[in-house]
Amino acid sequence: MTGERPARRPAGGLEAEVLAALWAIGRPLTPREVQRELGGELAYTTVMTTLTRLHDKGAVDRQRSGRAYAYTPVLDQAGIAASRMREMLDDGQDRRAVLAHFVDSLSAQDERLLSELLRDAGGGEREGSA
């Protein structure tokens, strides 16, 4: 890629990234652990600030863990999101059509192709994944 590389994290993407990391690991994480999980590219204070902001907005819970707090993502209140979303997806083609899905269905051949790609990329499964 030539030219100036844009900022790697556009303003506003940080909270989503930190929350996604908490969800991905699935156990309470200290800011230090979150920082490590995100590849150590973010400053500790940035991670700390972001977690505090998420806590203020009610997106994460925290409890004392030694000298720091450990953070866990808050489950969607009463599963509103899950059930409403389910309804939406079951409600015919047009609703599906307005949702831009990350990926769609695969043929058996496609599956083989993509598995090979991931093997070449090093490790079919992400380390530490469930």
């Binding site: 993407g13 909270e15 989503a16 930190v18 929350l19 996604a20 998420l54 009610g58 997106a59 209140q77």
Partner: peptide
């Protein structure tokens, strides 16, 4: 919820 840049898990 609108927190976390609108990420809903």
């Amino acid at each position: 919820p609108a927190a976390a840049d609108g990420l809903v898990v």
